[in-house]
Structure formats: structure tokens, C-alpha cells
Design a protein around this nucleic acid. Sequence first.
RNA 1: GGCCUCAUCGUCUAACGGUUAGGACGGAUGGUUCUCAGCCAUUAAAUCGGGGUUCGAUUCCCCGUGGGGCUACCA
Length: 487
Amino acid sequence: MSDQIRVRFAPSPTGFLHVGGARTALFNWLFARHSGGKFILRIEDTDRERSKPEYEEAILRDMRWLGLDWDEGPLVGGDKAPYFQTQRASIYSQQMEKLLSQGNAYHCFCTTEELNADREAQVAAGKIYRYSGKCARLNPDEVRWKIEKGEAFAIRLRVQEGTTTFSDIVRGQVTVNHHEIDDLVLVRRGGEPTYNFVAVVDDALMEISHVIRGDDHLPNTPKQILIYKALGFKIPQFAHIPLILGEDRTPLSKRHGASSVSEFTRQGYLPETMMNYLALLGWSFDGKTEIFSKDDLIKRFSLDRIVKSAAAFDYEKLQWLNGHYLRLLDDEKMFQLCRDYLLENKIISIDRVKNDEAYLRRVIVLVRGNLKLISQVGEQVVYILNDTYPFDSAALAKFKVRENAVIFEKVIEVLKEADSLTAAPLEEKFRNAATQLGKKFGELVHPMRLAITGRTSSPNLFEIMEILGKERCLDRFQGFLKLILKG
RNA sequence: GGCCUCAUCGUCUAACGGUUAGGACGGAUGGUUCUCAGCCAUUAAAUCGGGGUUCGAUUCCCCGUGGGGCUACCA
């Protein structure tokens, strides 16, 4: 037995990786990496109906995307294998034998109907339901007889009177009276072990030193401690981290918008954004630093800086952070991300990418300044990649007026004379044109921008014109002029 | 209902029992610029309520209120 730090993330593959789960995984991972310990991934797939292989794959994929690599678990193995609960049945029954032979657990022959009736009766009488403990008092001969007779049974933990106190790293001391804990079921009639039992057996056998998990498990902890004790295992340290809430302070779910890691991926958030943001939800280093690289986080992370109260997920701040990390990307990486996004969403064809890669790269470099999400790239490039594009109707009403005809006539004239469309000299020409017209530069640029882009805001207009080339610019200005003259 | 737990600006958070209660996102205002984005500057905005303890409570204790979790032969 070493006192090495070993932590685990144990998702059940009944859905995609939720941001709450992702943060739990992150805190475990950071703690392991910070302390030179091991990070273990275990798949809790005992819920056979709801567990699906595709969810399992998706979880692994999202973990990798976030940069959370595991030292033991699926795909990589490890000497505490297997890491799938469905493959550990013999381990559970072995541990169960131990409990039974020690008398720490007992067979319970009560049927579901009996239990339900009992519960209803007690609730109707205004009492708090507790298991009667009937089968706990069966003598060994009766038990043997019933088993031989073929009566189905569950197995319950024999819980003694008393209290259990443990010290949670984030919550401090928590005490629970055993009155609150029933003789909980460890194995269902039918032989399937329950969550509390398998979690303890797995954590103990995998030598998990710190159980870091969502605080929805806080009330489970005393029960689990009782199981650890009954099994004679060393009790790990616990750290219960608060849940993540939506903007309305109810638990975060799909109806709040994106709530699974894959959705954020799809919308064009960067893994470094997610890691940084998730770390800041429920943890802080000094209350001032906001930007943390992966290495910073590993260096700085500690369990004692985890906050006790639940945090609301703030999409605005996430977006701000993503803008920050997007600005840090080099042009090539930015190009790749945008290209992949445009392809995946069929905004651009694969042929066009193949033929015009260099051009597309220039376009991305031009518009990247306005992106906070990769998924915004589509609307940023419409008017460059296409010759039909939407017009801002309010701006159209404002600029499509007869008085502007003179502006466009001049613009067209200047443009026709230009032999090269390099942005800087081109801008110079139009500054002169504005002066000649007796207009301020802005008064010239705004209508031009609308004609060229269909909108009132864009990157530098002359760089756009340079990218579009003379012909396309001329077409757009002439088209717009025609529109004006038509009235 | 019972038990557990949490509570600082709208949001994320900081503050050995002594601070003008700090930072960030978002907001507002101004600057830079052809617009947007960005960047810079300025600014508004909080200790849930009530009792204690203390010379002094955001901080410690109790009660209340509100939120969350658990109360399964779900995980």
C-alpha cells in the first residue's frame, strides 16, 4: 500500500459529458497532475438500460478534447483493471461473500410489494419511513431454509446505532445519525449490486485516495463510509464540489442552452477556453487572476481553494474568454478551425477549399478579429465567399437615397482608375475622393460598406475590397447605384 | 415531511475578527478608429433578515428566510 495520490472520474455512459461532469473530471485531473498522482477513469455502466456504447465513446472523446488524459482506464488499461463495472461482477460477489460471512450484511426476503405497503402505511401514519429490519432478525437456519426453497432475496447492510462523522475537504465536518440511514440494499433481488456498494468496492480496490465528486453525493458518503468499514477498507478523503447552476440558479440542463461539452465544441469554443472557464467555476487562485493556461492550472490548483457555494454558468463570460483564446491562435490554426467548421456545416464545399485554400486563408485572417466563436465565421464570410448576401434593411433604407448617387458615381470612377487594389493606397484614393466631394471620410465609407458587405459593420473596408478584387467591387457599387437610381 | 448543505455587486469570485469590501464578465460613459471587434480610461453595482459573542463582525454562534441535494432493490 502506497500513500500515492489516486483519484478517479467515474461517469456513467447514459448521456453525453455534461459540463458539471467535465468540471468534476477537471478538478480530479488537476489535483492528480498537481500532486504527481494518478488520474483514473472508470466507467459505471451498471445501468444496463440507459448505458450506451456511443455515449461511452462520446465521453472519452470529450475528455480527450478537453485535454484530460487518464493514467488508467478504458483504452489504456492499468493494474486495477477492469475499469468497467459490468466486468467486475465477480469482484463484487467476492466482497459480498466477505460481508455476509462476517455478518455485516444479511439476506432480505421482503418483496417489493411488502416494502411498498409498509412504506405507505408509515407515511399515512405520518411517520418517517424506515425499513422494519425484519429480515435482520432472521436466524441462520431460517435464512438457509428460505434460500434453499428458492426465495428471492436482496442483501442489506447491517447498520448499527450511532453516528458517522467525516471531514470533507471542502465542506468541513459532516455528521449524520445512523437513524437517517436505513439498512441499505447492497445487492438487489436478482443479484445486481447497487451503486453505493460497487462504488465503494471499486474505489477501495483501485486504491483511490481522494474522492472528488459532485455534492449530490454528500448524503451518500456516510452510507459509503459504513460500507468501507464493514469491508475493512481504508476510508479515502472526500471533497464534494458544488453543482453548476443555470442562469436562473436551477441545476444546469439542456433548457439553459448548451450543457454538454460536445455542444460547446460544436459551437466553436476552444478546449483551452472550456478548461479555463470550468476551473473558474467553483475555484479561484487569488481572486484576481482570470486567465490560466493548462500548465498554470496544474501549478496553482488546490482543493482548499474550492468554493462551497454553487455557481451559475455564465455564457457571456465564457464567450469573452473564448474571444481571448481565439485572439491568441496563430493564423494557421485559426484557418484550420474555421475551414473545418465551414465544411462541417456545408457553408463551403470541399472542392472550393481544395481549389481556393490560399484565398480562404486570407479571408479568415481578415475576418478573425470579429470572432468570439468559431461558429460565427459563417456570417462573417458570406459577402466575401458569395456574390449574393443579405442586406441590413434599416441601413439600406438609410443609404439607398438619391443624394448618394453622386457618391457612388465618384466611387466607381475612382475604382475604375485604380490599377491595383492594395488596401493602403486604395484607402488614400478614397480619402482624396471624399475631400473632392466635400464629404467626411466616414460619409463616404459607410455607404460603400453597405454596398460591399450588406451591413454596417465589418473589418477594414479596403482590405475587404482588396480581397474581393476590382471586378466584384465594381459590380457591387454599380449594382447599388442602379438600385438608387431605380428609387 | 425528515436529514444534509449553501448564502458578498446581475454573474464568477477575493478579503489572519479591524480594508474607502478588491478583481473579472456584463452594463454605462469617454478615448483610439471608416464601422464592428479589440485596446485604454472612468463609472454605477454586493456582505439575505433577526438576534447574540466581541472594543470591533462579510468573517464566529443561534434562529429565520431562500436555494440546492438526499431521502430507491437509479447512478
